[in-house]
Amino acid sequence: MAEDAAAGLAIRLARASFNRALAEGDLAAIGPLLSAEVVMVTGSDSAVITGRKAQLMAWKREFAARERMIYTRTPQTITASPVEPVAMELGAWQGVADGAVQASGTYSAKWREVGGTWLIEAEIYVTLA
């Protein structure tokens, strides 16, 4: 299935905003990209973080870490559903600290369009290196 151009562009722009917010430690910019009931399954220990508030608290702890990791997600494909206002993003992620990649892997993210805005509903990360 081909990438829907409008959905793909909107999601890629939202992902770029999320990456920028992670790099800058900007919680206020992350919140609007997440649905209220967002679910994230982390890459190494498969911890489940449920809800926008819980995820923002996790990022706040991450941003306060002495040796902070900067995470970047790079979309490879985005497939929009032709029957529902949802899309699947597949890509690669990496965590960098002190200029060196400390961890990396693959991820999937489910997005939902709500009122013309694409929000992350669920993400699953797998640590491969």
Rank of each mutant, 00 (worst) to 15 (best):
V101Y: 11
W93D: 00
I11M: 06
I124A: 04
V41P: 08
V48R: 05
Y107Q: 05
M40R: 05
V39D: 04
R68C: 02
S108Y: 06
G43W: 09
A23D: 07
I120N: 08
A10H: 10
T77S: 14
V96L: 05
G116Y: 11
A64D: 15
K60D: 15
I49L: 11
P75C: 05
V83I: 13
A97M: 10
A21T: 09
A65C: 10
E3R: 06
D45G: 12
F18L: 08
R15A: 03
L13I: 10
A122K: 09
Y125A: 08
T50P: 00
Y125S: 05
A64F: 08
A109M: 11
D4T: 05
M88P: 01
G99K: 14
E62W: 09
T79W: 13
R15S: 06
P75Y: 03
P82Q: 14
F18C: 00
S108Q: 12
W59P: 03
K60Y: 07
Y71N: 02
D4W: 02
A92E: 10
L13F: 07
S104H: 15
N19L: 03
E121W: 05
L128E: 14
L128R: 12
I30R: 06
A54I: 08
A129C: 10
W111N: 00
K60N: 11
G8D: 09
K110A: 02
I78T: 09
G115H: 03
F18S: 02
I78P: 00
D26E: 13
G91K: 04
Y71L: 09
I30H: 02
A103M: 15
A36D: 11
G43A: 13
E24Y: 03
A47G: 11
R68N: 04
D98Q: 15
S108D: 02
E67Q: 14
E84G: 00
G99Y: 12
E62S: 12
P32S: 11
A5V: 12
A2N: 14
R66G: 01
I30Q: 02
A92C: 07
A54E: 08
T74P: 11
G31C: 06
E123G: 01
L27H: 05
R112C: 00
D45V: 09
Y107G: 03
K53N: 09
V101K: 15
T127I: 07
T117N: 09
V48H: 01
E84K: 14
V101M: 08
